Simulated scan of single mutants.
Amino acid sequence: MPNFRSVDFHCDVLWKLLEDRSLSFEQDHTGKLDVTLPRLRQAGAVLQTFAIYVPERMEKSMVPILHSIDLFHRKILSVPDMTFVRSSADAARLMNRSKIGAMLSLEGADGLHGDLAMLRILFLLGVRVVGLTWNHANWGADGVMEPRGGGLTKKGRAFVEECDRLGILLDVSHLSDRAFWDLAQFAPRPRIASHSNARSLCAHPRNLADDQIAALIQQGGMIGVTFVPQFVKAIGESEIADVLRHVEKICELGGEKQLMFGSDFDGIESYVRNLNHPGELHKLQNALLARYSEEMVGRFFAGNALQFLVKHLPG
């Protein structure tokens, strides 16, 4: 079987490092991390996106966000195998070098409190993807689990406009449906769903309805199929075959060139059977190769995402 390189658009290693500063990404001997350097090597990783997530028990301010960025530099970028990805040129170089790209995203902008200066500072520090909310409401929008299901606020709209001006990619994965459609009205740049599946196959609110997937595809955005078991299958144990159903649905809707993966490793406590960490991605690869061409599977694993980043990251 061919051995493809891989891109993963969402993991929560930084959250675990924030909670436990003793953990090591380079060589984890505790078994507490899903995503580690040895496992990324096993996966043939070309790019890993590291999400900054501030757990609910911590203060909603820039302090834990900056601590997370500090940990990213000290524990991930300090590893010689890793290289920072901030620009289109950085992304273009990844396929021709042996190092693994590391990109920063922000999952929930609560700590910015609508201050666009804080957003600009995060851009200068290398954050290139932002999800405005986590599951709940904040100053900018309602998250997908907020009962009232509100859309973007006035501050949220100003935030979106500044992200577009800077070249920050906006992630819709945790937005309420109304906020998703509010964001879709901002036409200049395509959006991504870093880690969401198809709601028509698994009726979890965090998944995307078919018309949302179609809108992302029409705008040239990206959808990261995720391995969160409760987003893969509503009842019973999730298996790789169930992940393939979401891949097939997105392809049926015309998204074969906009499909990628966003594992949510280190942000989950249960796993799709036989898909427990990046070192097992070859099992998903083999299952896909039974249904799709080598060229198409290569695009799913890395080609689509890299092409998108080359086109849409700042120069």
Rank of each mutant, 00 (worst) to 15 (best):
P2E: 14
R5H: 05
R5M: 02
S6P: 00
F9C: 01
F9A: 01
F9P: 00
D12W: 14
D12S: 11
K16H: 12
L18R: 13
L18H: 14
D20W: 07
L23I: 09
E26G: 01
Q27M: 03
H29D: 14
H29Q: 14
T30E: 04
K32F: 11
K32E: 15
V35K: 04
T36K: 09
R39K: 13
L40G: 00
R41L: 13
A43N: 00
Q48W: 08
I52Y: 04
V54Q: 10
S61M: 09
I69V: 10
L71D: 12
H73M: 05
H73G: 07
R74C: 11
R74K: 14
L77H: 01
V79E: 11
P80R: 07
P80A: 08
F84H: 12
S87D: 07
A89L: 06
D90H: 15
I100Y: 04
I100N: 09
M103L: 15
E107Y: 15
G108H: 15
G108A: 15
A109L: 08
L112H: 13
G114A: 07
A117Y: 15
R120C: 00
F123M: 05
L124S: 13
G126L: 06
V127T: 14
R128L: 03
R128T: 02
V129A: 06
G131Y: 11
L132C: 00
N135M: 05
A137L: 03
G140E: 05
D142Y: 00
P147T: 01
R148G: 01
R148Y: 07
R148E: 14
R157V: 01
D164S: 05
L166F: 10
L166G: 07
G167V: 09
F180W: 07
L183W: 05
R189Q: 15
R191Q: 02
I192Y: 01
S194Q: 09
S194L: 00
A198Q: 08
H204L: 06
N207I: 04
D211Y: 00
A214N: 07
A215W: 13
A215L: 10
L216P: 00
I217L: 11
Q218D: 12
Q219R: 15
G220E: 10
G221D: 13
G221E: 14
M222L: 14
I223P: 01
I223F: 07
V225R: 05
V225N: 07
F227H: 08
V228P: 01
P229C: 05
P229F: 08
F231C: 11
A234I: 10
A234D: 11
G236F: 06
I240F: 06
A241L: 05
D242L: 08
D242H: 14
V243L: 03
L244D: 14
H246Q: 11
K249F: 13
K249S: 10
L253Q: 05
G254L: 03
K257Q: 06
L259E: 12
L259T: 10
S263Q: 05
D266T: 00
S270V: 08
L275G: 09
G279Y: 02
E280A: 04
E280H: 03
L284I: 08
R291D: 10
R291N: 10
Y292L: 11
N304A: 06
A305M: 08
A305D: 06
L306K: 04
L306W: 01
L309Q: 05
L309C: 09
G315N: 13
